[in-house]
Design a protein around this nucleic acid. Structure first.
Length: 484
RNA sequence: GGCGACAUGGCCGAGUGGCUAGGCAGAGGUCUGCAAAACCUCGUACGGCGGUUCGAAUCCGCCUGUCGCCUCCA
């Protein structure tokens, strides 16, 4: 581990702080997961790729991380605050299926798309509907502590009972009340109070018994209840999208700290948005491009399909706290860049220990860790990788392969594969050997053609192979090839 | 209206008080039957106006512009 400590930007204090876990080497990390009522889009990718990098880097540093990411399958309402329809309920009505079928379907597509982006699975992915008793217990505790009240089956958190309310978002409750356009529900004591439990109408699809009658939990309480269950009353990192800072995370803090009388989270991390022509990409704005659409190219704003790994690389090229402006031109630049990176890796992987000077592995690691320690600066980390790999490729090309190349390979693999998650993907399994054999055969034929000055034939071999995605390269040591 | 960000060369995108980010695209060259790849060389950017400083793209103020949150949203 490097001398310089990991620094994390904490939204709570609005500055970078040294990262010191509550119980080292253990780290508890909770990230707000998706509401599973539709396919994940590029915005989700930015968030989960960002926190995937955080997770991977913490593990690289040797921390034992427990990563919890919830699946929201109830309580998230459509439209104006307290009066809207449940998102899953609505989608269930539209698709004419049970809400749990919706949850199942979009949980599946969510993980399918995240897998494609090489996002590691959370250690625990708890569902809100699977933790109704925990949520009820927490609400009861809040009522008992005088922080919540029952208004005829609706239970609200009393914002005025919590002096700290607003500390994350820097908001005063008075401002929130006067500035808001939301009409306050009539049974609330204060307009800023938020629902912990909602009374269910007869036609409501998802509902449970509770001490306050039949109903369903509010959106915020699930994260408090589930994070407490799996990470304890206090834990290290809570992540999520910037737009969740208020009200969602503010409410989580209020609920948890009033229920437990302990600091809820030490480090709050928020990723920035993905924009499309300067506008936030979001479901409600109708400009979101689903990840699956990127992978297949089936979207009116896309001219073609994009490899999932290119999307990941593209996102990692900007910092998680910066907005990422999407365009196909930018994606294309990322695609070419990634291809070049993979080409360098392939050259290095083929190299064997040589007579050159040994490569400064510690220097490489130090540079990498230095930039990653600065609040996970993946953009700079990628720059470091490019610089060092170029250096290595040059020494190999000059027949001065470092004497410690095997060791170097292993470090590169750790950095590029384990941490950044952008290692070249393996070609389709069983036919790989066959493909290689066939291409080598064609290279042999082309070589004979060239020796006979039959350039028409040799060019046909090369050009037709290129059509198929196989690039031939003539070098001093003979012809080599790369498959896209 | 309240709160908060950001404004970097053709594009994307880091960044620090003084020294080359990086990627993509582009130009010239070496190599090659021709290519491709690789290698070498090349751009001297930081919204505007003031201020602090020996020196600011980097600190402060004002202005302009863009965006986010304040209502569900990664």
């Amino acid at each position: 581990m490097s001398e310089q400590k990991l620094q994390v930007y904490n939204t709570l204090t609005r500055k970078k702080e040294d990262f010191e876990p509550l119980n080292p080497p253990f780290v508890g990390m909770y990230v707000c997961g998706p509401t599973v009522y539709g396919d994940a889009h590029l915005g989700h990718a930015k968030s989960y790729v960002s926190f995937d990098l955080v997770l991977r880097y913490l593990r690289y540093l040797g921390y034992k991380v427990r990563y919890v990411q919830n699946i929201t399958d109830v309580g998230h309402l459509v439209g104006d605050g307290e009066e809207g329809e449940d998102k899953l309920g609505k989608q269930a009505r539209l698709e004419q299926v049970d809400p749990m079928e919706i949850a199942e379907k979009y949980t599946y597509t969510y993980f399918r798309d995240m897998d494609a982006l090489n996002v590691l699975r959370p250690d625990i992915a708890p569902r809100a509907t699977g933790h109704i008793p925990e949520q009820i217990a927490m609400i009861e505790k809040l009522i008992k502590n005088g922080h919540a009240y029952n208004a005829d089956g609706n239970v609200y958190f009393d914002v005025h009972s919590d002096e700290d309310y607003g500390k994350l978002s820097g908001r005063k409750t008075e401002e929130a009340e006067s500035g808001t356009r939301v009409e306050s529900a009539s049974d609330k004591k204060n307009p800023a109070d938020f629902a912990l439990w909602k009374k269910a109408e007869d036609d409501h699809l998802m509902k449970w018994d509770s001490p306050w009658g039949v109903g369903y939990p509010g959106w915020h309480i699930e994260c408090s209840a589930m994070s407490t269950k799996y990470l304890g009353e206090s834990f290290d990192i809570h992540g999520g999208g910037l737009e969740n800072q208020f009200p969602h995370h503010e409410c989580e803090i209020a609920q948890s700290e009033c229920a437990h009388d302990a600091q809820f989270v030490k480090y709050w991390m928020h990723n920035n948005m993905v924009t499309l022509e300067g506008q936030k990409m979001g479901k409600s704005l109708g400009n979101a491009i689903n990840l699956h659409q990127f992978f297949t190219g089936e979207h009116k704003l896309l001219t073609r399909a994009w490899d999932s790994q290119v999307i990941r690389f593209f996102l990692l090229q900007s910092h998680y706290r910066s907005t990422t402006d999407f365009s196909e031109d930018a994606l294309e630049a990322a695609e070419t860049g990634l291809k070049n990176l993979h080409s360098m890796i392939s050259t290095i992987e083929k190299a064997e220990n040589g007579s050159g000077e040994s490569f400064d592995i510690e220097g490489f690691k130090t540079s990498f860790e230095k930039v990653m320690n600065d609040d996970f600066n993946s953009a700079k980390a990628i720059a470091v990788v490019f610089e060092k790999l170029k250096e290595l490729r040059k020494s190999i090309n000059d027949q001065k392969t470092p004497s410690n190349i095997e060791e170097v390979k292993s470090v590169i693999k750790t950095v590029v594969d384990d941490v950044l998650g952008i290692w070249p993907q393996e070609n389709a399994g069983g036919s790989e050997e066959l493909t290689k054999g066939l291409v080598e055969l064609l290279i042999e034929i082309r070589k004979e053609a060239r020796e006979n000055k039959n350039f028409a034939l040799s060019d046909k071999v090369r050009d037709d192979l290129k059509e198929l995605g196989v690039q031939l390269m003539d070098g001093k040591e003979g012809t080599s090839f790369e498959i896209d």
